[in-house]
Simulated assay, not measured.
Amino acid sequence: MELNIKHDKEYQQFTANIGDEEAELAYATPSDEVMDFTHTFVPESARGKGVANKLIEEGLCYAEENGKKVVATCPVVKKFIDRNENYQKLLRD
Rank of each mutant, 00 (worst) to 15 (best):
V71M: 12
Y11Q: 13
I56G: 08
F37W: 12
R83D: 04
A52S: 14
T40H: 00
T29G: 00
D82H: 10
T15L: 09
Q12E: 12
Q12M: 11
C74A: 03
N84F: 11
T29A: 11
T40R: 00
D20E: 15
K69N: 07
E10G: 00
H7Y: 03
A46D: 06
G67W: 00
S45I: 12
V51D: 06
K54T: 02
K9V: 05
H39Q: 08
K9G: 01
T38W: 00
A46P: 05
G19P: 05
P75I: 08
D36R: 04
R83H: 07
R47H: 02
E64A: 13
D36M: 06
Y27N: 02
E21D: 15
G50Y: 10
N4D: 10
A72T: 12
R92L: 05
E2T: 15
E21L: 15
T15C: 11
Y11D: 10
E10N: 10
I56D: 02
E33W: 06
L25G: 09
R47V: 02
C61V: 14
S45M: 11
T15Y: 09
E2I: 15
R92N: 01
I18K: 05
V71H: 00
T73Q: 03
D93M: 01
G19C: 08
V51M: 05
G59W: 07
F14H: 08
L55Q: 10
Q12H: 11
Q13A: 01
P75L: 14
L55A: 06
A23M: 09
P43I: 09
R83Y: 05
Y27R: 01
Y27M: 00
A72W: 04
Q13K: 03
S45H: 13
A52K: 06
P75E: 14
Y62M: 00
M35C: 08
M35S: 06
I81C: 05
R83L: 08
E10Y: 04
P75N: 15
V51Y: 05
G59C: 07
K79G: 13
V70A: 03
P43Q: 09
V70I: 09
L91N: 13
A26D: 07
I5S: 05
K78F: 10
H7E: 02
K49F: 06
R83E: 09
R92K: 15
I18V: 05
K6I: 09
Y62A: 02
K79H: 13
G19V: 06
V70S: 10
A46E: 08
K9C: 03
E58P: 01
T38N: 00
S31N: 15
G59K: 08
L91M: 14
Q12I: 05
K69Q: 14
F37P: 06
D36P: 04
L60N: 04
K79N: 14
V77R: 02
V71W: 01
A16D: 06
K9A: 11
D20V: 15
L25T: 06
V76A: 12
P30S: 13
D93P: 13
K54N: 01
C61D: 12
A46W: 03
D20P: 01
F41I: 06
M35D: 02
A52D: 10
P30V: 05
Y62I: 02
F80K: 07
E2V: 15
K68C: 06
K69A: 03
G48D: 07
K9D: 01
S31K: 14
K49M: 15
E85T: 08
T73R: 07
K78H: 09
C61T: 13
